[in-house]
Amino acid sequence: MTSSTPRAVVIYSGGMDSYTVLHRARREGYELHALSFNYGQRHARELDIAKQVCAELGIAHQIVDIRAIHGLIDNSALTDASQALPSGDYAADNLSATVVPNRNMILLSLAIAQAVNIGADRVFYGAHGGDHVLYPDCRPEFVEKMNDVAAIANFSPVTIEAPYLHKGKDEILADGLAMGLDYANTWTCYLGEALACGECGSCRERLAAFARHGLSDPLGYSSQRPEAAASPQPGTDEKTAASQRPGTDAEAIADTNEGRQDV
């Protein structure tokens, strides 16, 4: 990178969406500064993944500990381990418990501050179309208003980029596959256990995206039988292999999500 190389901050959770955003921004030629946040999330394992990926890519990376605010945002199944984590596909009636109050406004505010501090004029984050139904801070209206604020909050205006704002998870995956990305280097599950659960909305949406591409997810799932988790035998259809997971029927998940409309 030269002194004339444009800088950008990427909010990088370690998940599938921000992983793709990180690589997309990198390919666009930005000198990247990745920010990950520990806000007391149950799935803090994603931070270890983010750290590893940035180290391998040589990207400047900070894990910002904001657990001091945990008591302000702990009324969520993602930040309160005593709450049961809901399962099933993304829908307001069954996954509203996973909404963390004001999360993206908090994270974007800190990322904008970092951008101004280092002379960057872009902040990237991984909001996508599939989140519109559940998370208000991933909707186009939110990004538009935050961009208005980011333009006047400092003497140096910052632009918020959400390249997948109108894209679904399968489209994000398609973009990543075209870049040759290995999604074994991501963590999506809302639980931070050794294996992904395969049952939470985040896992199910991810599995559905791989199923639509006729691929098996490279992550291990606790709901897999050993024989189902093994690599397919030569000649075995990848989508068939993915659909053999008990409790995580990837094709059924894909069919269920196919009719979901973003709002």
Rank of each mutant, 00 (worst) to 15 (best):
Y90V: 15
Y90K: 03
Y90Q: 09
A91F: 12
A91N: 15
A92R: 09
A92L: 11
A92P: 05
N94K: 02
S96W: 06
T98S: 14
T98I: 13
V100K: 01
V100M: 10
P101F: 09
P101G: 05
R103D: 02
R103Q: 09
R103A: 04
R103Y: 04
I106L: 15
I106Y: 03
L107G: 04
L107F: 06
L107T: 10
L108S: 05
L108K: 04
L108Q: 00
L108M: 06
L108T: 09
S109M: 07
S109C: 08
L110F: 15
A111C: 14
I112Y: 00
Q114Y: 10
A115R: 00
V116D: 15
N117Q: 15
N117T: 15
A120L: 14
A120M: 05
A120S: 05
A120W: 10
D121F: 07
D121T: 15
D121V: 11
R122Y: 01
F124A: 03
F124W: 11
F124V: 09
F124M: 03
G129H: 08
G130N: 14
G130E: 14
D131I: 04
D131G: 04
V133Q: 09
V133I: 13
V133P: 01
L134R: 04
Y135H: 06
P136C: 13
P136A: 04
D137I: 11
D137V: 03
R139C: 06
P140E: 06
P140Y: 08
E141S: 09
F142M: 07
E144V: 10
E144M: 13
K145T: 12
K145D: 15
K145E: 08
K145W: 02
K145F: 08
K145I: 13
D148R: 14
D148H: 08
D148P: 00
V149H: 01
A151S: 13
I152G: 06
I152C: 13
I152T: 14
I152M: 12
A153V: 14
N154P: 03
N154H: 12
N154M: 12
F155D: 12
F155P: 00
S156H: 09
V158R: 05
V158S: 08
T159Q: 12
I160Y: 00
I160K: 05
I160N: 11
E161D: 13
E161N: 00
A162N: 07
A162C: 10
A162W: 08
P163F: 07
P163A: 00
P163L: 08
H166I: 00
H166N: 13
G168P: 04
G168H: 09
G168Y: 07
K169H: 03
K169Q: 09
K169V: 01
D170I: 09
D170W: 05
D170N: 11
D170S: 13
E171C: 02
E171T: 04
E171Y: 01
L173H: 10
